[in-house]
Design a binder for these strands. Sequence first.
DNA 1: CACTCATTTCACAAACTTGTGAAGACAATA
DNA 2: TATTGTCTTCACAAGTTTGTGAAATGAGTG
Lengths: 160, 160
Amino acid sequence: MTRDAERDDDALRQFVETLALGLADMGWQRMAARVFAALMVTDSGRMTAGELAAMLSVSPAAISGAVRYLDQVGLISKERVPGERRDSYRVLDDMWYASFLKQDRLLKLWGETADEGIAVLGEHTPAGKRLAEMRDFFQFFAKEMPLLFERWHARRRDTG
Amino acid sequence: MTRDAERDDDALRQFVETLALGLADMGWQRMAARVFAALMVTDSGRMTAGELAAMLSVSPAAISGAVRYLDQVGLISKERVPGERRDSYRVLDDMWYASFLKQDRLLKLWGETADEGIAVLGEHTPAGKRLAEMRDFFQFFAKEMPLLFERWHARRRDTG
DNA sequence: CACTCATTTCACAAACTTGTGAAGACAATA
DNA sequence: TATTGTCTTCACAAGTTTGTGAAATGAGTG
């Protein structure tokens, strides 16, 4: 019994690291990725900073930085139960939505960068045209991504 | 005349750095980003390793690593004109396609990671269900991305 | 208003990345 | 096969990121 529980616990921690590694490869800060992964595999979807520090074997200071970042980008929320001294952190249901809104903003930024380049190169040069194509590409995706996300939401309403 | 040419040259180099910085923020290796940006703003779309090293003021060794990476991920191709000792590197026209195929592969990988987690947590636990939703999200996008890209291609055929 | 527990901030240390120089490998000519 | 120009590899140094410990801050309770 104890053996099984321990084995499960190990498997769980290992999966947290796997998931976090994947997120880190996507460009997330490592600690933020580990915290997010830890919250994802919790049934309640909530943990205190202390619990997170214990689960991940890191100092409270490291947790502090990670949760601030995750909160800023809208992937988790900070909550304090009245009459508790400790903050809880919770994974948000619409976390993917937040992450895609962010991408949308980035795509727009790329369009602007391309425009800068076109101004320097001249829009009728081959290089200028190449950048114009890049700009169009990003604009296209900036427009389509939110629509795509809408469809995902709609589908989830129907299925789940 | 010389003044203007110099000024343009400066503006160009500065834009190369701007573009590279953006790519680096997206998670590209810094040197790879600079090389790619340099090729993007060239009318011919082609440069030799030596030219790249000179333009970016870095050692040939740095170029070597960067072009190998860019070649691997399919964003540039290496070419050698017969009777030349130098390799040329060229930005590919379908580079965005390559980059999106790569993303597609990544999305599938995410689905598999989620499945691992579901196996550990059990699919009927709240955490298991949360991961299942993550998997569905990635699967949905893995399926839709190529279709979206098709539409981009079609649009480009019509417009350009 | 003092006490206690939890979180945050800051300076520093450890670990990792990234580019360099120098030596080696490769390919085209003669 | 020797020569020359180009590219690659490798060990190392510089720079950056990342997490820690200790002190400071903030919030709830008597």
